[in-house]
Design a protein around this nucleic acid. Structure first.
Lengths: 93, 93
DNA sequence: CAATTTTTTCTATTTTGTAGAATTAATCAT
DNA sequence: ATGATTAATTCTACAAAATAGAAAAAATTG
């Protein structure tokens, strides 16, 4: 979800930040990367090396982007939720 | 989700059916029960033995019901999704 | 080139997911 | 009342995913 949301600025650290902000739940950096790797292995996302020109030093970024099948998977997941819960949980808050 | 949705008719077999219909995904009966047991161990759901009076023979049912913390967990999960995706996926289909 | 910084990799463990055979407990028919 | 049938749950074992945190890598800066 975070890779999708982040668009062209998705890489390990921003994904971690997005997840942390959205979930109030500490997530280790290792957890983020292994998940990204598994999603890539399944073809849901893809990655490539960013250029080395960073502003302040530090290793080059590895960018991620969601693939069509990844979007399909998100849609399907949402569909299942909708099928079971519908509006039962209360669409408000 | 299925236990919540099924209300007073939630037990192993109906949960399985609900999941199967909602997800077009085969799920073994063993998978259903171990999941129910783990959710109960966490206090998200609770269970009790149904009366023995079935209509057609067969073992008595073990009913499940969602607890407050289970509903909270569902809400929180939905909140995370909303925080990250919002309407990005397209609320239509 | 050493210090610093940003980011990714690696390794190991716990938790979840999954399947399917076996078992249990009930009713029905003879 | 007992064997057949039925509906449901338990049990056992393995595969996959989640998680953490230390280590390593690769870049810039003084």
């Amino acid at each position: 979800m975070a890779v999708f949301r982040l668009g062209s600025d998705a890489y390990g650290m921003t994904v971690r930040q997005t997840v942390a902000e959205a979930s109030k739940n500490f997530t280790s950096i290792g957890a983020i990367y292994t998940t990204l790797e598994r999603l890539e292995a399944k073809g849901f996302i893809s990655s490539w090396q960013g250029e080395a020109t960073a502003e302040r030093g530090g290793r080059a970024k590895r960018y991620f982007k969601i693939e069509g099948s990844g979007i399909d998977a998100l849609r399907e997941k949402e569909q299942v939720r909708q099928n079971i819960l519908g509006g039962l949980l209360g669409g408000v808050a």
